[in-house]
Design a protein around this nucleic acid. Structure first.
Length: 589
DNA sequence: GCCGTTTTCGGCCCGACTGTTTTCAGTCG
């Protein structure tokens, strides 16, 4: 392994943190590595090389002499002694056993040391033989839980669910909870409220009306038809597992007095990293934050019973001297610093800002609906324009539109235009060929209003070849929107390998924009790459990548992905009116 | 391991719940 870029170094530091945790090191030490990892992610690539070469890494916040040495090793050689040692010291099977729910480092350590277990199979056999009960800290119930955990792993029930599926499960569930006796308010929190592309479980926060009982709410919650098992139930928290064809999902219900709803909702929205920072800030102000609210500290720094009333999330940030941070931005990737300077964008793109639907397929290629059906649906949504962008000829598997049928499609678009209010724009989603060329002759592309350029084949090219391929595309004089840039399909296909920043550099010097793909299976680019594009001054379109009328609603996912990257209305081309949009993306120079 | 208008040591964010204990460790979020 040779020189590492900043993201690779950051990942290695995070791995060190994980391995240190497994070794039982102090949480402060492991957090130090996590903090340094974050500091690197926020750094310019060139600046990393400069700081390493000049020995000035300790200028970075959270990087001291020790970690500076690790970073230098990693950047120059691709590894560092500590990482190798930690990996080598891990008993065989440790990582595999750690994947079982409710098995943490301490328990896995006992299992590997005392019983010499190195695989899920061996662990399962040991549980069945009753050899696990009797170990220090293990009993019959733990044995049973381990067996259930192994079964869940095998059924892939531990895989994170797509956001769209989690919403489909969560929205009816929260409606059910709101109907419970004594519920003043109920909202879904957690990573779903932050619009993360996948969620591990659902969190539902309930504000309890005066005089109502927690038990009444929990009984109603547990009686929900899809509840398969109640995993735990205490005075304020109840965890259930839902039966669901798409894979079971865990739901945590938290019930608090309604007066504490805002702080509880904030607490359970996360992220953990965002909250760790906020609590540090609170401590500096003589305050402490927990899920129960904001409390004053005494002189010794211990929590008192003196509660600071907080009615809204905005009031909580205000009390901490910060500007309000929307849920999508709560990841501790720079938003706290912005909030301190009161520089959170006031004009983050919002669902109501989009005026045109970009990236739609019809029955001319692999869409399920006709041009007319798509157009009428866009009308119904109140959209001002719709770009018809079916696949190009090379995408044979998707019924790519050959030159012979392209004219017929233009005729159909003209016919439908007479019937609908929404302005129809002619486009294509052109394959990026293996050599980086686009799929129609320039003379055809120039007659279109919109060209989306996407990779649909040869995903396995090595990073250098893929980078060269895309750089050739991006420097073409045709204005192109880089469609679903890295080709990832969540939980099914990893992003392909390429040097993203180099490609963005080329695009920024040429003519084009970047797609924020709203298909919940894609949500491509992820926020860090959208930020990298924004830093280069690139424009964006939020797309639906719709293959059906129903999928026009995917725009919503695209909008919230854009918000996670801090994108503002003015950076999104399809917030403009049809004429302005068309003038900007016109393929011909 | 990092940090400092609390400045070179002693802090560093907080709590629920379970299971195995007999006062608390481990795990999770």
């Amino acid at each position: 392994m040779s020189r590492m870029g900043k993201f690779d170094v950051a990942r290695a530091l995070r791995e060190i943190a994980e391995l240190l945790k497994m070794r039982g090191e102090s949480q402060f030490k492991t957090r130090a590595y996590e903090n340094a990892s974050r500091a690197l992610e926020a750094l310019d690539e060139e600046r990393l090389t400069l700081l390493v070469d000049e020995g000035r890494l300790t200028e970075l916040p959270g990087v001291g002499d020790s970690i500076a040495g690790r970073i230098t090793d990693l950047h120059r050689t691709g590894t560092t002694k500590l990482l190798e040692e930690l990996r080598g010291a891990l008993p065989p099977g440790f990582l595999e056993l750690s994947r079982v729910p409710n098995l943490g480092p301490k328990k896995v350590d006992v299992l590997t040391r005392e019983l010499g277990l190195t695989s899920l199979e061996a662990l399962e056999a040991a549980c069945r033989a009753g050899r696990v009960r009797g170990l220090k800290g293990f009993g019959e119930k733990t044995e049973q839980k381990i067996l259930e955990g192994i079964a869940q792993l095998r059924e892939k029930k531990t895989e994170r669910a797509l956001l769209v599926d989690a919403l489909a499960i969560g929205e009816p569930l929260v409606a059910h909870v709101r109907a419970a006796p004594g519920v003043a308010r109920a909202e879904l929190a957690g990573s779903l409220r932050r619009w993360k592309e996948t969620v591990a479980d659902l969190d539902c926060v309930v504000g309890l009306a005066d005089g109502a009982t927690v038990d009444g709410v929990m009984d109603h919650f547990c009686a929900y038809a899809l509840v398969e098992a109640v995993e735990s139930r205490g005075d304020t928290k109840c965890t259930v597992r839902l039966a669901q064809a798409a894979g079971s999902m865990q739901v945590d219900l938290r019930v608090v007095p309604d007066v504490d709803f805002a702080t509880a909702l904030h607490h359970f929205t996360g992220s953990k990293e965002h909250h760790v920072r906020l609590r540090g800030i609170a401590r500096g102000l003589g305050l402490t934050i927990s899920e129960w609210g904001l409390y004053r500290l005494d002189e010794k720094g211990a929590a008192t019973d003196e509660k600071v009333p907080i009615a809204t999330e905005a009031a909580l940030y205000e009390r901490l001297g910060l500007e309000y941070v929307p849920p999508e931005l709560r990841e501790n990737v720079g938003e706290i610093e912005l909030a301190e300077r009161r520089a959170i964008p006031k004009d983050l793109v919002d669902e109501g800002d989009l005026r045109g639907v970009v990236h739609c397929h019809t029955v001319f290629s692999d869409g399920r609906n006709t041009v007319e059906e798509m157009a009428r649906a866009a009308d119904a949504l109140g959209m001002e324009y719709l770009t018809i962008t079916d696949h190009s000829p090379t995408a044979g598997y998707a019924g790519g539109v050959g030159l012979d049928r392209l004219k017929a499609q233009w005729d159909e678009i003209a016919r439908v235009q007479e019937l609908v209010k929404v302005r129809l724009l002619r486009g294509t989603e052109s394959d990026i060929l293996e050599d980086g060329a686009l799929d129609y002759p320039d003379s055809v592309l120039e007659q279109l209003d919109v060209v989306i350029a996407s990779v649909h084949n040869r995903y396995g090219l090595d990073g250098a070849k893929m980078t060269a391929r895309l750089k050739r595309t991006m420097e073409l004089p045709i204005y192109k929107i880089w469609g679903h840039p890295l080709g990832r399909l969540i939980n099914r296909r990893e992003p392909f390998d390429c040097r993203v920043e180099e490609i963005l550099d080329v695009l920024a010097r040429g003519r084009g924009a970047v797609e924020v793909n709203g298909d919940p299976n894609r949500l491509d680019f992820e926020p860090r790459w959208l930020r990298a594009a924004a830093e280069r001054g690139l424009d964006f379109v939020v797309s639906a990548d719709a293959h059906s009328v129903a999928a026009l609603g995917y725009l919503r996912f695209g909008v919230h992905l854009a918000r996670r990257a801090g994108l503002r209305r003015g950076q999104i081309l399809n917030t403009r009116d049809a004429d302005s949009f068309r003038a900007t993306v016109r393929p011909a120079g």
